[in-house]
Write a protein that binds this DNA or RNA. Structure first.
Lengths: 166, 166
DNA sequence: GCAGCCATTGCAAAAATTTGCAATAATAGA
DNA sequence: TCTATTATTGCAAATTTTTGCAATGGCTGC
């Protein structure tokens, strides 16, 4: 059950779409505005429901296809936090800043984390392979301080416990 | 259509499963051995087909559930390369080494990339938040040298072209 | 403003994945 | 070795996501 989350964005999706040669259909307008005004995670079904309040005829397929388009444009990013949950996919709009998630394998908490090291990696790629970085994502799995203190880290029992909990 | 890829692993999946308190059923044995001997990407359907050659009665659901279990154990990792392709998920066994993928948004090529900076990030997390890193993944999107030379980078046309190509 | 091209849509159906539940079988402990 | 416990399986069905195709409607060029 994929989820969608909206994040700050400099320009409207509509403008961005136009810029990329996409047609601005009425359905697209609706979907875009839902994504832009949402402040929580939304999954495909929720988006569909919202959209139907405004445009009753809109089809599920259209929602999926437009999410796919936005993903391809690099505007939203489907992400599932290391697949810790297994069944939930999150979408989030690309942020300017290099972006990373650190997930505890024992308690399941996910932290956002920023480090200047990321910038260095970008520069390294630029310099050594001539690759120009548009965006990047780090996902790290491990055990947070609290769980380690409780002895939950890295043992088979901890994994089993985490599994049961999920 | 998720894909599976097998990667070097220090101990057998069976041993690992036991260690985590999982039961070693005959189906599991079959699935594990398929994963262990595969040297290309495999998707769920392919695994099922392989498994049925040995254990004709095995069900699709069993394959899915065991893949989920392995994911939760952190033994295989479902990954979809920045969702560039949109429809293909790749699984790969966790590697010891910090692991990263760099994908060109224009030509779609994916490079593997290793950098000592990753190690530094681990140490930083360890030192500053007391988080102990088990594994990590970097995914970077941008434009490779070749595509930049062809002027494909970062322009609306390039995105459209990349989209068409996919 | 109008015509034509072609991206986009809706529908129907396929494919992929997940879930509920009763039956089965792996494992620990007697 | 045998028994009880309970994880795991298979089946059926639900859910989610993708695909094929004809019809529609946005946009470009006139």
């Amino acid at each position: 059950m994929p989820l969608l989350r909206q994040v700050r964005r400099r320009r409207g999706l509509a403008e961005l779409a136009k810029q990329h040669g996409l047609r601005l259909t009425s359905q697209r307008r609706v979907i875009f505005s839902i994504l832009e005004s949402a402040n929580t995670h939304l999954n495909a079904k929720q988006i569909l429901e919202e959209a139907r309040k405004v445009a009753p005829g809109i089809d599920q397929v259209t929602v999926y296809r437009n999410l796919a388009v936005l993903k391809q444009l690099g505007v939203v990013d489907e992400l599932d936090l290391l697949h810790l949950r297994g069944d939930e996919h999150y979408y989030e709009a690309k942020q300017t800043r290099a972006h990373s998630h650190v997930a505890c394998l024992a308690c399941g908490k996910v932290f956002e984390y920023y480090t200047p090291a990321m910038k260095r990696i970008h520069q390294e790629l630029e310099r050594e392979v001539g690759f120009s970085v548009s965006f990047s994502r780090i996902e790290i799995g491990g055990y947070c301080a609290a769980c380690r203190d409780q002895g939950l880290a890295a043992t088979p029992e901890a994994s089993a416990a985490a599994k049961r909990r999920s």
